[in-house]
Every structure is written in structure tokens, then in C-alpha cells.
């Protein structure tokens, strides 16, 4: 599925919640469901500076597509990471670089992605795009 379609899918999912509690309960569930990452990736080198909740991010490249693996020590942060991974993992570097990720705003989680919110998520998206760019550049050279 394209990034666009995945975003629409998530927006649709969130439409059923008219109560913020249900919305957050859903995010918390997704946080718990975020696939565990291997301990070898939970190293300081993969740590994204975010002050309050720690976020680890690792990326791999297979058959032209980028795959992301991430974790955090805060569940809400993990829930949002899960959404981001669902949308961005398995896409090509170009698609990732072009993505606007407007769904975050549309499902009412914008405040979590504010650069002044010290949860590491904003830096995480930056880092995901940076990975995509590096992978693209490296493969462009071949």
C-alpha cells in the first residue's frame, strides 16, 4: 500500500473514536503491540536525543525498500512510533522522503510531534528521513 493509502486507513480507524480516552486507549494498545526490537539495536548509538522519553531507531534496506525498527520507554510514544512505522516501513527511500505525514495532525496527535515536545518523536521522523536519504544516496552511487 502507498503511504497515502496507509495514512487514509489510519485516519479512518481513528474516526470511530469520538472520545479522547478511546483514542489514547487505542494508542496505548498500539504501543504495547509495537514489535520488540532486538537488544543489539537498543544501543546509545541508535538513541534519538529527546530528553524525556528515550527513542531508539534502527533502519535496514532490502530490495529497494527501507525497514524501520524502533522502541521507546514511554508507551504513548511507542504507539505513535507504531503508526509511523506502519506508514513508512517497507516504502522506497523516495516515497519516505516525499511523505508529509499529515495523518498525525488529522487524528489529533499533532501536539506530540511539536518540536518543543521533548519526546523524541520529531527527531525520530527527521532521522527516518535521513536514513532514507543516506540509503538513496548510497544506492544512487552504485
Amino acid at each position: 500500500m502507498s503511504i497515502r493509502d496507509l495514512e487514509e486507513q489510519i485516519v479512518g480507524e481513528f474516526m470511530v473514536f469520538d472520545d479522547w480516552m478511546d483514542k489514547y486507549n487505542h494508542i496505548i494498545e498500539m504501543g504495547k503491540d509495537l514489535p520488540k526490537i532486538e537488544d543489539k539495536f537498543k544501543i546509545d548509538n541508535n538513541l534519538i536525543p529527546g530528553c524525556q522519553s528515550r527513542v531508539w531507531l534502527h533502519a535496514g534496506f532490502e530490495e529497494g525498500k527501507v525497514f524501520f525498527y524502533a522502541d521507546s520507554d514511554a508507551v504513548i510514544t511507542k504507539g505513535i512510533i507504531n503508526l509511523l512505522i506502519r506508514v513508512l516501513s517497507g516504502q522506497t527511500p523516495d516515497e519516505i522522503l516525499d511523505s508529509k505525514l499529515e495523518f498525525i495532525d488529522r487524528i489529533g496527535l499533532k501536539e506530540h510531534l511539536s518540536p518543543t515536545r521533548s519526546n523524541g518523536l520529531t527527531s525520530m521522523i527527521k532521522q527516518m528521513k535521513l536514513y532514507a536519504l543516506v540509503i538513496k544516496t548510497k544506492n544512487g552511487e552504485n
Binding site: Y24, I28, T77
Partner: peptide, 12 residues
Amino acid sequence: IHPYDIGTILDQ
């Protein structure tokens, strides 16, 4: 539970 998680819900 991480302080960030609790703080986020308390804010709501």
C-alpha cells in the same frame, strides 16, 4: 509507567 505517559493523560 513512564512519567511522559502519565503526564500526557493528566494533561488531557
